[in-house]
Amino acid sequence: MLRLCHIDDVPKGATRGFLPAPGAPRRVIVLWHDGQLLAYADACPHYRGGTPMAWRTDAYLSGDGRHLECHAHGALFDIASGDCIAGPCLGRRLTKVALHVDEDGTILVPDHVAGRGGSER
């Protein structure tokens, strides 16, 4: 398991992107949704290998705040499921990342998250 961040690093109502290890190919997007912590690989499924989705640091939400958005071509993703509901990757979905939260609030992710990342299908 790799330390991603601390639970206090993720404010309610915002999204944050963290590198699981220095030089990792993909960030992990973490956010609170309905009282639960959720995480996805920062890898839009539009193009092969997956590409980063924010338009600036930590800016992963759509303009109206209701979806995750890829700011390459505006694909929208359901926050709870990661399903693309509009845009170029319609029918595909973001890759969920399993989170483990320690008693002291440290958020950990599986080692493979820092490997060759991306999502396909």
Binding site: W55, G63, A72, H73, G74
Partner: peptide, 9 residues
């Protein structure tokens, strides 16, 4: 190319 809030690069 850069991502943007305009829905395109």
């Amino acid at each position: 190319y850069f991502n943007s809030p305009l829905g395109c690069h």
